[in-house]
Nucleic acid binder design. Structure first.
Lengths: 191, 191, 191, 191
DNA sequence: CATGAATGAGACTTCATTCAT
DNA sequence: CATGAATGAAGTCTCATTCAT
């Protein structure tokens, strides 16, 4: 841990603290103390406290977007692909739980310009996922009485909420939760 | 608005501001300015900024708990009662959107003692809802392969997430969203 | 001194310190220490350190503008009025020496918007003074081969420079310096 | 510019920046960025930020002192020599405008020891100029009712003030301003 | 010669809260 | 009841300078 580079240690410390207490409740001093450096060092690598958040924020989303793209582009039938995508986002959120918590909670703490950029990335993700739902609807395997857009919000609410209740000490493994959530989603969409 | 009592005006102002910017991003001065009173007045009626939050926080939850109790205790079949409960929490969250947003977002901003009290109330609500799911499982109308507890988290994620994407200007009315969400939940539980 | 109001004490302390060391070399902490209050008190009355400067800055200029207007509007012949105006600005600058020094030195330390406002006031003063020179030119008593505008810059350079060399311990009284400077100006303008 | 030596590029960058924003408003980082080198390089050649200022500061003054000596030592009559000296300081200040601005504005930003050294050089210059005025007084061609010392302050105020209002885009050339200023000075001294 | 990471002190500012009136 | 002046702690950020490489 101590042999990681300074910026890595800072990101790591910030991730843990932001996840635990929320961005606004964490002082820069706490971050640098935990990373074992001084404030000057932090401002050498990051322009601001916001930058630190931005860095963390983007990493999960980018990773999940990449995985979604890959899953969505697969050759399997749509039900299978949607199930895989739905389960995957759960598993990766739990595997990177601190990062995910920061991402889930801190949307509006970013400065104006970065917030817009982030919103765009988020929107892309949302739309890729929605396209899967619509594909199933077009294929005649998913219900069409509920707008796909709403279903996606519905499902991602469940995902984001993980940050509120999930604990690694709980009885269920990430894979199980992912499967259950995906099952619930697919069941609610079938005709 | 100006003919409301001072504490009412304060709660009202705080609700709007906390909903819009988050508890930590709102200064007491902003709240009193919007309420048209001075800081002294606020500290006359409320012990602290946290108190203000606590007041708002509790009100939605208490109201929703009461409604849930009533719906759950009704004579209708379980599928009907769960559907009604699921739809109702959506509708009341949207009807009291600012309060709900504050409630959804500000869980961890309460001081230790109040947080515990609040968690207990929340847990009660969660358990009452879970009891409905379990009732359906016991009655043989809901699937049992997914823990009821998980399903409740799943659904309340969707509810809490409303605060992130819902806008009154959108195409769907509160009632529609409530119905759709409840439909999705019931569909995912049916055998 | 200690029975002055807090804002007065702050302005007073700031004036002395800014005059002695320059705006950028004075910490807010020094100002409040000298005024015998805390930083919080300062920010209760003034929005920023810049505000403090702005307050000081404006006061001399406004006073001198008022006096210039009065002198310029008098019934005396133009040579007499220009002499009086030229001497007066020296005397009032010396009588309010700390304020004047702050004014002479700190033009570009103001924030953008305030700087523009101040520049406008300054310009007004400059132009009122120039009008006197032009009046004398039009009346045929002052030379016309040198642009009035340039002469005004020339003279106000001398005035501003007082802050650099003048000391109350010196041999000359404010009135003497005023008279000498005004004599030099008038002599340089006569035909 | 890029083929100048590193210390030259640093001095050049510092001059422009100090002139534009004032010594205290310029970060060492900005200077080295503009010079296209790193901070280490700067500290290799200069002991401190103050050193940079000192270097700039001295150069104008030394040059002007040399020129004054030469003009003053000439064979021309005193009125002619004073006029030439007065005009020359204007022209050289404008020709080296950034350096001059730094010199005019940054007197008190030097550290104690350097400030004293600088003051001595400045005093020498002042006294050499004053000697010219006194020479004219002794020769019976300049008025004696105004102390020569005061007249020198008077004139150098005008010179220093150039930094505040002069712009190369203006209608007057350096030579014109020099002539006008010298004319004004001589006119104010004649009997 | 030159780099650039890192320091550490100190800068300005914000803000929840208290208290005399 | 209500005011608003004042506090004091804490917050984010800047910057001249040093030093191992």
């Amino acid at each position: 841990m101590s042999n990681a580079t300074v910026p890595e240690r800072l990101i790591s410390a910030a991730t843990e603290l932001f996840a635990a207490k929320g961005f606004d409740r964490v002082a820069v001093q706490e971050v640098v103390d935990r990373a074992g450096v001084t404030k000057g060092a932090m401002y050498h690598y990051f322009g601001s406290k916001d930058d630190l958040l931005h860095e963390i924020y983007g990493s999960v989303l980018r990773m999940q977007t990449a995985r979604l793209e890959e899953i969505a582009a697969g050759p399997e039938p749509i039900t299978h692909r949607l199930h895989a995508a739905a389960a995957d986002v759960i598993v990766t959120s739990i595997d990177n739980f601190d990062q995910a918590k920061v991402y889930f909670r801190s949307a509006d703490h970013l400065a104006e310009d970065k917030r817009l950029a982030m919103r765009a990335e988020r929107r892309t993700y949302h739309e890729r996922f929605r396209a899967l739902v619509e594909e199933g609807q077009a294929a005649g395997v998913f219900r069409t009485d509920i707008p796909a857009d709403l279903t996606v919000h519905y499902y991602f609410g469940s995902v984001h909420h993980l940050g509120t209740w999930y604990s690694p000490e709980g009885p269920l493994a990430a894979k199980d939760i992912g499967r259950h959530y995906a099952d619930l989603l697919l069941a609610s969409l079938r005709l």
